[in-house]
């Protein structure tokens, strides 16, 4: 086993232990809600790190995939009465199909054109959710989404949801670490570093770009489904492009070169606005200023900074 994977697994084990204990120390449900949101964002940003940091592609449309996961699973379970676990899987399958189709058409684009195409996807999904009121409930949203259940246990409370969402996120992180410490992860990074040189080693650029895109869309869809069945209410506002932008901001803030960057970025930036709400007037100033400051002085994000401080090489 490579030393990098061993180290990451050790840190992950530490994180899992800490996560498991937090509810014993904090029982304020509001904090748990924020932690749950952080977990969902970590899941999504983890996928985005694969796409942006590893495969070198950009997307400002991942809130659209959240929406597919959230609305897909919510609507299916509401209209057909199917079990939320099953509808989550179906929504995931749907997202996989959509993102694969998009991957093959859109990832031919470069730079601005790719940014715009993914933005356009997000906007089209958003406006569809707003306008197709009969199906989606329109701007007021979609209430009464059934929760996940396991036997007689329904994951309704923040605490129950906490012990559902975090394990899913940690397991996904575990698997993603497997991936980045393998030939697949290396191929992705080679691709981001030099597409032509990578192709001349037999790495199929199209396959890996689409793989990263589809995987990141799947993570976002999963996060969206978990979100919908946890809050039991969704509205289009959650899935606008600003959320997409925020997700990429988390990715860069934490450092796109490492999955730990995703954990740091989403783990710190998700609670920040909630925390800053006490300085309501200055919220945007602080958030914007902080984002600028970190990116100006530490372009590799927080994980890059930590790597420098500890002189270690993160994956």
């Amino acid at each position: 086993m490579s030393s990098g994977l061993k180290r990451d697994r050790r840190i992950l084990a530490g994180l899992a232990t800490a996560i498991g204990m937090i509810p014993f120390l904090i029982n304020n449900p509001y904090y748990l809600t924020v932690l749950n949101l952080s977990a969902l964002n970590i899941l999504t940003v983890c996928g985005l790190t694969l796409l942006i940091g590893y495969a070198g592609q950009i997307s400002l449309g991942h809130a659209g995939f959240w929406a597919l996961g959230a609305y897909g699973s919510a609507l299916l379970s509401l209209k057909t009465g199917l079990n939320p676990w099953l509808t989550t899987a179906l929504a995931l399958g749907f997202t996989l199909a959509v993102s694969a189709g998009m991957g093959f058409t859109v990832l031919r684009l470069k730079g601005n054109y790719l940014v715009m195409a993914t933005l356009a996807f997000n906007l089209a999904v958003y406006f569809f959710l707003v306008e197709a009121e009969e199906l989606t409930g329109g701007p007021p949203g979609l209430p009464g989404i059934p929760p996940y259940t396991l036997g007689s246990l329904a994951f309704v409370t923040d605490l129950a949801a906490y012990y559902l969402i975090w394990p899913v996120v940690l397991i996904t992180l575990f698997l993603t670490f497997n991936l980045v410490h393998s030939g697949e992860g290396r191929a992705l990074r080679a691709l981001a570093s030099g597409e032509i040189a990578a192709a001349c080693l037999g790495i199929n650029p199209r396959r890996y770009k689409v793989l990263a895109f589809v995987l990141s869309a799947a993570y976002a869809s999963l996060a969206g489904s978990l979100y919908a069945h946890y809050f039991s209410f969704i509205s289009p506002k959650t899935f606008d492009i600003f959320f997409s932008v925020e997700l990429v901001a988390m990715c860069l803030f934490g450092g796109k070169g490492s999955l730990w960057g995703a954990v740091l970025g989403a783990g710190l930036l998700t609670p920040l606005p909630h925390f800053l709400s006490i300085f309501d007037e200055y919220r945007d100033l602080i958030y914007g200023g902080l984002l600028m400051g970190v990116l100006i002085f530490f372009p590799d994000g927080l994980s890059g900074l930590m790597r420098k401080l500890y002189g270690r090489k993160a994956p």
Partner: peptide, 25 residues
């Protein structure tokens, strides 16, 4: 100009940070 990188995506997100900052102002 103070940014310590030439990575376009990072520079773009500096302008996004600036955009949020300006709205705050």
């Amino acid at each position: 100009r103070s940014a310590k990188t030439h990575d376009p995506l990072t520079l773009i997100f500096i302008t996004i940070g600036a955009s949020i900052f300006i709205r705050g102002l």
